[in-house]
Amino acid sequence: MYVAVKGGERAIDAAHDWLARERRGAPELAEIGNDQIAGQLKLATDRVMAEGSLYDRDLAALAIRQARGDLIEAIFLIRAYRTTLPRFGHSVPVETAAMACIRRISATFKDAPGGQILGPTFDYTHRLIDFALLAEGAVPPPRDPETMPHVTGFLGRDGLIEAADPDDTEPGDLTRTPLSLPADRALRLQALARADEGFILSLAYSTQRGYGRTHAFVGELRIGLVTVEMEIPELGLSIALGEVELTECETVNQFLGSKTEPAQFTRGYGLVLGQSERKAIAMSLVDRALRWKELGEDFTGAPAQDEEFVLSHCDNIQATGFLEHIKLPHYVDFQSELELIRRIRAEALKQGTADTTEPEDRA
């Protein structure tokens, strides 16, 4: 704490009051509500849910409101709240093949069974400010989601792509157990799903520029609703808890084969809560880059291939905490370094090794 700040506790209370006034904004303006944030700032809300590891759109909207739009601060609030919740069990793996898709595209097959569903996307919009949004307009009617098979399944029928991971062992839980290295793929995917979108985007971009052994095609990108189920041992069956919106991306990557594996395509995978296709695509590229060892490839020294580098620096809450702690008082540390510099300078002057003359004097 800033114990040396004049006013002490009263100053901190005043800072809180000032923050509350800034959060509210001009009193003559209507106060923004949680429903408006959740409904009209959906992508921001979804990012807070995804990186906060808590699927609750109303809470995410409240966190954004409290954080004045600072999404990382909102993610921090959601994670802090998440730690107070009891855990009753875990759900069974969701069936993304049964996803009711509101968006589904493939960059590898033009005529994929089920067709291409463009859905709500900025991909085909002009990057021009739409001043018509300043006026209220009509809202198009919603479209019913559709269920369709995974595109990569068609490559799998001919053995042209590696089989999906058959590992049925229970994965670790990164939210309850600290990350340890080396990490298996399940833990890596958890870390990437919670990771900062900008960090993962930069790493994925680096693999496309040659810093990694990936040349990826988007086999399929889909956004939609899946049913979450939980097994009830006492009843001997599973029950549906509800639906969640997910974004899933499978990339198809070149693989020339190894001593034990024939030439085939390999997979990169990304799965994110809510609608966040940029994060899902980036996640799948980084996932594939991190798989170099299990696929028998060479390590090229690329940052996206370095598991320790990626997983130790991808979490925005850890990064923010470590970065922002330097604004807290470091009076003792600085005084000790200040005294050290003064002592070194004094000893240098005493020995006559320091050149303190002006440049024109030396000339």
Results as ranks from 00 to 15, higher is better:
residue 232 I to V: 02
residue 270 G to I: 07
residue 54 L to R: 02
residue 62 L to S: 09
residue 170 E to D: 08
residue 100 A to D: 15
residue 244 V to Q: 11
residue 238 S to E: 07
residue 354 A to I: 06
residue 21 R to T: 09
residue 163 A to V: 07
residue 97 A to Y: 04
residue 135 A to R: 15
residue 143 R to M: 08
residue 37 I to W: 02
residue 54 L to C: 03
residue 328 L to W: 06
residue 118 L to H: 12
residue 139 V to C: 09
residue 116 Q to M: 08
residue 289 A to D: 02
residue 73 E to H: 15
residue 89 G to F: 04
residue 166 P to W: 04
residue 298 D to W: 04
residue 234 E to L: 12
residue 167 D to M: 12
residue 132 A to L: 12
residue 334 F to D: 11
residue 47 R to G: 03
residue 56 D to M: 00
residue 112 A to M: 12
residue 70 D to V: 05
residue 356 T to P: 01
residue 333 D to I: 05
residue 258 S to C: 10
residue 95 E to Q: 15
residue 298 D to Y: 02
residue 236 G to L: 03
residue 21 R to L: 11
residue 257 G to V: 13
residue 291 R to D: 04
residue 246 L to Q: 03
residue 222 R to Y: 02
residue 302 A to Y: 04
residue 307 E to R: 03
residue 122 F to S: 15
residue 182 P to L: 12
residue 59 L to T: 02
residue 308 E to C: 00
residue 92 V to G: 13
residue 78 I to L: 11
residue 153 G to V: 00
residue 108 T to R: 10
residue 216 A to L: 09
residue 54 L to D: 02
residue 140 P to D: 11
residue 362 R to S: 13
residue 87 R to K: 15
residue 143 R to T: 12
residue 300 T to P: 06
residue 16 H to C: 07
residue 27 P to N: 13
residue 73 E to I: 01
residue 55 Y to F: 13
residue 102 I to C: 12
residue 200 I to V: 15
residue 302 A to H: 08
residue 335 Q to Y: 10
residue 177 T to V: 10
